[in-house]
Design a protein around this nucleic acid. Structure first.
Lengths: 238, 238
DNA sequence: TCATTCAACTTGTATTAACAAGTAAAAAAT
DNA sequence: ATTTTTTACTTGTTAATACAAGTTGAATGA
């Protein structure tokens, strides 16, 4: 278990405001308290408040308007670090499940891996797993993950049910996702993917290849994700 | 013509460093000058330098490492505000063309528009246009754009060849894109799209629906974009 | 009544300062 | 020679302050 360090003030305010927005204390379209008010409320200086608001703005939770204030933006639902938005109905929070298709195993990296690897990564081998993500009991994401086996003792024996991979990495190994790159394509589903995602014949799927950076230098997470976007679309901000 | 205002210092440094990175003065993996060095070089204070670097980091041009410095990240090619990465070869700068399929016309909004519209937008009508984006002489993007006809005099009579829509909006109307939302799906190409993008039979395409916010309150740009992702993938950072 | 001006907000930009924390290489000790 | 410690860097966080610029609504004028 990794002991959490002292978190900076702006981060603390960020988490508070984010939680309030997600909990509906501040609703879409609402005006947040002004920067000066937040300074007083949480006894911090304006640069700290501004950094919290800037991060919220960057993550798409609010939009700032000079002379006006910070307005709460509508918010997408997040699964892992993917956002989805239903094209028909709004989607609740509880109908989200994860099913392990292949439990974490140690293996060599595939020969033609989707991203270039460092020598350290290559010789360390990788932890491999396959998961299926279900929304409303229909499979939406098929996620193949690769992690270099660097400083992750006993990871293959951990229980992944009802806990996200990211959460386990954070809680037990102190690994935080800091960002990453992704490539997106539209492809025809293979037989295996059609079966797993319960697709009709000749249905296209979204294919995401992601490389995620962590706070541990040299440690990356890789994912190859196949999405059924018939009912739900991938949602993004920029 | 809109007169440009005085640009802030951090923005100026951002543009300089960004250009240097794009021009190859600083190459991928290079360490940028330290914050204090940049302060001296451009005679500004550290907060200004830090804001420039933070923006660069946010846009994915650099990655910052505490105790180490700012390292130049690899960079994707940008088309409009879409990034692409070739799956086979690196792609040059010159083989990028835009063809107007439907010249800008004024019309009513479609009845079942992809995003909800305000009353002001509805009664203003919209400027509609269709464009085809070619990479290496093969059509990659088919872009259908909608703009509310608010304070955009004579826009339908402007020449759009060799100039991006965003550039015209910025230069003549002072409109800047500040961010936006997008939905991404994988769909089967319709007959029209197959023809325009020179697709083989039963080939899937990426469909993006975007709503872009501008610096003018109430003015949004909407795009429905169809991408052939066989040779090039959409590239993203997060 | 209507339009204009003004005052009281808001966020944006800039300066200066100090210390904390992470990194890497030189220096010292074993 | 190897390991450990120190030192000199780097970026990260916090503080206090001032003025610029955009927004809004009240006060003022015609």
């Amino acid at each position: 278990m990794v002991t959490p360090k002292t978190i900076p003030q702006y981060r603390r305010l960020y988490e508070i405001l984010r939680k309030h927005i997600l909990d509906g204390v501040y609703k879409e379209g609402d005006l947040l308290p002004s920067e000066n008010e937040l300074c007083q409320m949480y006894t911090m200086t304006r640069p700290a408040v501004r950094q919290a608001l800037a991060t919220l703005s960057n993550d798409g939770y609010i939009r700032k308007h000079q002379g006006k204030g910070s307005i709460v933006h509508h918010l997408p639902k997040e699964i892992g670090i993917l956002s989805v938005s239903g094209t028909t109905s709004a989607l609740g929070d509880r109908n989200l499940k994860t099913r392990i298709v292949v439990k974490p195993v140690l293996m060599r990296w595939p020969d033609d891996f989707m991203f270039p690897l460092t020598d350290l990564e290559k010789e360390s081998g990788c932890v491999y797993m396959e998961r299926l993500r279900l929304l409303d009991d229909s499979p939406i994401f098929y996620d193949i993950s690769f992690i270099a086996n660097i400083n992750l003792p006993r990871i293959t024996s951990r229980k992944f049910v009802n806990r996200s991979l990211f959460q386990i990495l954070r809680d037990h190994y102190g690994v935080e996702i800091k960002g990453g790159d992704q490539r997106i394509k539209a492809i025809m589903a293979s037989a295996k993917i059609s079966r797993l995602l319960h697709l009709k014949r000749d249905q296209p799927v979204l294919h995401l290849e992601r490389k995620m950076e962590t706070n541990k230098p040299g440690l990356f997470l890789y994912s190859s994700i196949f999405c059924n976007t018939e009912k739900y679309a991938i949602f993004g901000r920029f």
